[in-house]
Design a protein around this nucleic acid. Sequence first.
DNA 1: TACTTGATGTGGTTGGACCACATGCCCTAG
DNA 2: CTAGGGCATGTGGTCCAACCACATCAAGTA
Lengths: 250, 250
Amino acid sequence: MWSNHIKYHGLMRTHQLVLRWIEDQLSGGQLAVGGRLPAERTLAEQLGVSRTSVREAIRVLEAMGVVRAGVGSGPEAGTVVISDPTAALGSALRLHVATQHLPVEDVVETRVLLESWAAARARPEAPEVDLAAALLDDMDEGHGIDDFLALDVRFHLALADAAGNAVVSAMMGSLREAIQGYAGQLTANLPDWDATASRLRAEHREILAAIRMDDGGRAAELVAAHIRGYYKEAGLGPKDSDPARLPWLA
Amino acid sequence: MWSNHIKYHGLMRTHQLVLRWIEDQLSGGQLAVGGRLPAERTLAEQLGVSRTSVREAIRVLEAMGVVRAGVGSGPEAGTVVISDPTAALGSALRLHVATQHLPVEDVVETRVLLESWAAARARPEAPEVDLAAALLDDMDEGHGIDDFLALDVRFHLALADAAGNAVVSAMMGSLREAIQGYAGQLTANLPDWDATASRLRAEHREILAAIRMDDGGRAAELVAAHIRGYYKEAGLGPKDSDPARLPWLA
DNA sequence: TACTTGATGTGGTTGGACCACATGCCCTAG
DNA sequence: CTAGGGCATGTGGTCCAACCACATCAAGTA
């Protein structure tokens, strides 16, 4: 009989070995979302490595949004497989923005790209469109700035989801998360919040109407103008605003 | 005098505290790309935590492509700040593809989106375009499949870089990395590799010519057809091939 | 001068210990 | 027989001390 012990892994660090083992379990289907990893001590013994190395691997997976560790006992405890790509991409982008190697302008421009694509592709009958409409109705009620912005985030994410592409949805969410702190500062620069909120609501209604009429091209244009307009009003100069360089839009 | 020791962090796990400290150093400019973190033992003492927790934090940063750890002594040793967003996004996407929560079709379609956008936006005089041309010339020489594919990857990445958006470049690279293993299997499905390679070369030349003529719309169309065609020939059915749903392209 | 050799400092790995926490069983008091 | 408290169990979270492998550099040696 053979054992799970893997030795002679000279080129690979131990925690990467654990990482590979878990990834193989995922790819092979032995481990799926909702499933639970063996206990750290058990896994360490099975693979013939120290618990420390197992823990380092789990930390990485946790940062990637692949697992969630919970202490104690019962259904909420243990290390369980989840799937939250947005968290992983978001924190990665945030860190690299912090190192100044990802300009905020590029993040905003990428958001314009993805979100206008999603708006163009969204089907009028998608349930996410109805969710967006409901959120839009909520925004009409007299909310504070924070509440409004929270609803705004959910509105835009709902539109992105309506396109039915999980990768685009995840990237959209992560871009939003990466510049969330930045966006908060920008809001303080706005001269008249009530007027801005009013305008944003009106633009949201136009976007939704375009999607409902299945006019993807117009929806994409409106979304691009909507996002660029907000950041421009808040004082973030676009890296390249020459419309002649945007031939992929209508 | 106060110390760097941070205690009473009841809600946060210790390695997250270290993570936050390092991220603050990055945001504040005390740490920049090329700089080196304090030694693990030193950092542990400064923050009043165990070396284990410091190492877990560094593992996460390493997985995010923010630092690189090197043993030994000298300039290559120690934990140094780098910036490789592609690695972070790539492994994250790969893992989530493994959990089947990110369909390969969505990854391919997102690649079409980003890459056609980049082709539309690329300036003819960008140096990356010259690099792409040089790579294209290399591909003409009689290479094996693996060499050809390696050059192909670099060609596409060069085109993406020519758009001048770091976020799009990083995402492009990560998408490519995430489905790299998948693409390798697909290649085996091709009926006639030499014919395919010949076609790919011709399409590459057309794309490059369109960019050189500053015809962004045509370049975007060609790129989209190029990518979709390859995966289709290899047997990957697109999730949605209705051209009427793609109004953002010319 | 050229080479060997050891000191130094880095990350890599391990085993063991202890803690906080959440569950669920079992025993006891009513 | 039931309701309650309290302990046994198993989980991740943290820390410590030690050792290894590796790369450099300086001191000593031929």
